[in-house]
């Protein structure tokens, strides 16, 4: 999935729905944007179902490079180590 933003996808979906509901398009164009709309709604729903969700802590290693490590609330107050 490209770096498409949710609200952009949703806004495009809205435009498509409105266009389709107005019904001023040729059958060909209607079908084309209908397909795009279906794809967009799937993309949106997929964004709302991200199984890879994590909470990460940004820490510095010895060389001063930033690294991410998993974070849970039990982690508490041992930052900087």
């Amino acid at each position: 999935m490209a770096a498409v933003k949710f609200e952009e996808a949703l806004a495009r979906l809205e435009t498509i729905v409105t266009e389709l509901e107005t019904g001023n398009l040729s059958l060909n164009d209607s079908l084309k944007i209908f397909e795009e709309g279906i794809k967009l709604s799937k993309t949106c729903l997929k964004m709302l179902d991200d199984a890879d969700r994590k909470v990460e802590l940004m820490v510095q290693d010895k060389e001063g490079k930033k690294q991410l490590q998993a974070f849970t609330l039990d982690h508490d107050s041992d930052r900087g180590t």
């Binding site: 389709l20 509901e21 059958l27 209607s30 079908l31 709309g37 279906i38 729903l45 709302l48």
Partner: peptide, 26 residues
């Protein structure tokens, strides 16, 4: 999250209804 899912579903349904209407018209 639930509100967003609902929003997308509403659009999805409108989309399907619109194309069905168009096909009926045609």
């Amino acid at each position: 999250l639930g509100e967003l899912i609902e929003m997308v579903m509403i659009h999805h349904n409108r989309l399907v209804r619109a194309i069905q209407g168009e096909v009926r018209l045609l």
